[in-house]
Design a protein around this nucleic acid. Structure first.
Lengths: 191, 191
DNA sequence: CGAAAACTAAAACGTACGTTACTGTATCCA
DNA sequence: TGGATACAGTAACGTACGTTTTAGTTTTCG
C-alpha cells in the first residue's frame, strides 16, 4: 500500500509551527526545519522565498486557527458575560489542541525577538492585536455600555497577562485565575 | 582638564543594558556592545567571560534597580491598598527613569528569546519572578487574609499583562488601566 | 621609580547560518 | 509516452558572529 505524504509545503509549515515557537525563531536554524519537514533547502526557498517568509505564513496559520477556536467558543456561549470570558475558555482549548505547541504566545514571542520585523511578519502581528482589541471591545459593549472601552482594555491586559504567565511558569494555572479575575472585573462594570 | 571616564566594566554594563533589551539579546552583536562601550573585546572577556556572562550581570543590575524603585514606592504608600498597588506606580517611575530603556520587560524578553538559558541567566530570571510572587503575596495578606494567594495571583497577571502591553503597543496607557483594574480586584477581595 | 595590572587596537580563528546552485529522480498531466 | 514540474540530496558560498590571541599603551600603587 502506497503511503502518501503531505506536500512539502504543508510539512514545512507544520515544522515551522512546531519548532519556531518552542525553540525560538532565531534559535532554530533552517537546517533543523528542513530535517523536521523531511525536505530540502531548494523547496523551502522556492515556496516561501526566505526563512522570514515561512515564519510569516506560519504565523498566519496560527492566527487563523486561534480565531477559529475563539469563534467557536463565543458561539457556544449563552450570555453576554460568558461571551466576553470565552477568550479564556478558547485559550484553554487552543493550548490543549494537538498540533499546537509553543512556549507562550507565538505572536508576542516573535514581536519580542525581532525588533524590526519584515513587512509580512509585522502585518500578522498587528492583525493579531487588532483582532484582540476589536473583539473584546465588541463583546464588552453589552456589558459596560459606553464604558466598554475600559472593560475591554482591562480584559485585554488580563489576557496578555495569562500569556506572559506561561513564560514565567507562575502562577500554575493562569487561565482560570485570569478568567475568574476578568469575571470579577466584568461584574464591577455592570451598569 | 582631565576627563575621567567610567571604568570599562561599568561602560560595558551600561552598553549591555541599553542595547540588549532594546534591540534584543541575539540581535545585538558583541561588536556593537564594544563600540557603544568604547572598549575592546579582550576587556569584555576578561571581565565577564562571555556575552552570556555580561547579559547575566546586566540582568542582575536591572533587578536591583527595579527592586529599589519598588521598595521606595511601597515605603511611600500610606495604606494597605496603595501598598499593593505601588507596583504600578513603581513601574511608571521605573520606565520614566533616565537610564532605563527597553522594549518591554528585560526579564521576560530574555526568557522568551533564550529557551534554555545558561545557569547565571536562569537564576536572575527566576529571582525576578520569585520577588514578584513573594512580595505580592505578602502585600495581599492584609487585604485578603487567607484568600491572599488568589489576589496576589490576580495582581501578578495584571502586572505581567501591563508589561506585555508595551510589546503590543496597545492599550495606550496600560499602567493606569492595570492599576485601576487591580484596585477593583482588591476591593472585591475585601473581607 | 618600576613592576603589575588594566586597557586598547587589530587581526585571526572556527564555526554557524541563510541562501544559492547543481544534479538526479519521481510525479503529474496533456 | 514524453516533457514539464515538484522534489530530494548535497555541496558550495558568503558572511556574520563569539571568542582568542598578540602586541603595545596607559594606569595604578607599593
Amino acid at each position: 500500500m502506497m503511503v502518501t505524504r503531505a506536500p512539502a509545503r504543508t510539512r514545512l509549515l507544520r515544522a515551522a509551527d512546531r519548532l519556531l515557537f518552542t525553540r525560538g525563531v532565531q534559535a532554530t536554524p533552517v537546517d533543523d526545519l528542513l530535517r523536521e519537514a523531511e525536505t530540502s533547502a531548494a523547496t523551502l526557498y522556492a515556496q516561501f522565498g526566505s526563512k522570514d517568509g515561512l515564519l510569516a505564513e506560519a504565523l498566519e496559520g496560527r492566527l487563523a486557527n486561534w480565531q477559529a477556536v475563539w469563534d467557536a467558543h463565543i458561539a457556544e456561549a449563552s450570555d453576554d458575560t460568558s461571551r466576553l470570558l470565552a477568550i479564556f475558555d478558547a485559550l484553554l482549548a487552543y493550548r490543549d489542541g494537538e498540533r499546537v505547541s509553543a512556549r507562550w504566545c507565538a505572536f508576542l514571542a516573535t514581536a519580542s525577538e525581532i525588533s524590526n520585523p519584515p513587512k509580512p511578519v509585522r502585518t500578522v502581528l498587528d492583525a493579531d492585536s487588532a483582532l484582540l482589541r476589536k473583539r473584546l471591545l465588541h463583546l464588552s459593549r453589552p456589558l459596560a455600555g459606553d464604558r466598554a472601552a475600559e472593560l475591554a482594555d482591562a480584559v485585554e491586559l488580563m489576557y496578555s497577562g495569562v500569556l506572559a504567565s506561561f513564560l514565567r511558569g507562575d502562577p500554575a494555572d493562569p487561565i482560570s485565575v485570569g478568567r475568574r479575575s476578568a469575571e470579577a472585573l466584568a461584574a464591577s462594570y455592570r451598569s
